[in-house]
């Protein structure tokens, strides 16, 4: 059974339809990348899966259970964690408190404070600092660590490399295999198509709220990806 099955998903912002019947699935232990231009519906897809935007009951199924229409906190407690775009750390909490709040309503599993500090050693010496005083890269590490602390079966990462230096991005993506090794399936939204194709087992390209391309990255020619990306 696939952890996540999304079938014929439509999403709206008021009268504006952002997703037109998306089919999307994530298999156990798989890393899936979602690419697409701005406004293609990538973030909307994640927002709908986590319940921040309402979804029809049957269109999102997580581990065999329909979760559409559940409130975000109930969905998250089932084992989906999200690294939100722009990191959204809690400014009045320290780094360690940010990590702990991730664990508070999470599931049992391999991740704890010690292992997060082993994954991102830079965080340990700054554990008592207010989280928003960290550098962008360290903030992103905290956000990922916070999501992992809930021991998710499915980790959703929205634009983790946004606004970060290439070296820092490489450091963050170096952690991905370790995360994968613990058994969680990962969905990554990525602006950088090259980066996405390097790490993903499977790739979705969205265009104006529809899936334009889907499959294993190595089977695509650059021309095909660019056609799906830009639609021209």
């Amino acid at each position: 059974m696939n952890p996540l099955e999304v079938h014929d998903l439509h999403a709206y912002y008021g009268d504006f339809r952002a997703l037109h019947g998306i089919d999307f699935r994530v298999a156990a232990g798989e890393t899936v990348a979602v690419i697409g231009a701005n406004g293609a519906g990538k973030s909307t897809l994640l927002r709908t899966i986590t319940g921040l935007l309402p979804a029809p009951a049957g269109s999102v199924v997580f581990q065999g259970r329909p979760i559409g229409g559940l409130p975000p906190h109930a969905i998250v407690r089932l084992g989906i964690a999200m690294v939100p775009e722009g990191r959204c750390l809690f400014p009045s909490l320290s780094v360690e408190e940010n990590l702990l709040i991730g664990a508070q309503f999470g599931c049992r599993g391999p991740w704890n404070l010690a292992r997060i500090y082993r994954l991102f050693p830079a965080l340990e010496e700054k554990r008592a600092m207010p989280a928003t005083l960290l550098s962008g890269g360290q903030q992103q590490m905290t956000a990922i660590g916070r999501a992992l602390m809930s021991n998710p079966r499915l980790l959703l990462c929205d634009e983790v490399s946004l606004g970060l230096a290439p070296l820092v991005v490489r450091e963050i993506y170096a952690a991905m295999p370790l995360i994968k090794a613990e058994g969680a399936a990962v969905v990554v939204i990525e602006q950088d198509t090259g980066q996405a194709m390097r790490i993903a087992d499977r790739l979705y390209c969205l265009q104006e709220g529809r899936v334009a391309l889907e499959g294993a990255p190595r089977t695509f020619t650059p021309e095909r990806v660019s056609l799906a990306y830009f639609g021209v």
Partner: peptide, 16 residues
């Protein structure tokens, strides 16, 4: 404190 900071992200942490 987390809910006071940002109630949307707090919900993503499983906070009702």
């Amino acid at each position: 404190r987390a809910t006071s900071d940002d109630h949307r992200t707090a919900q993503l942490m499983g906070i009702d």
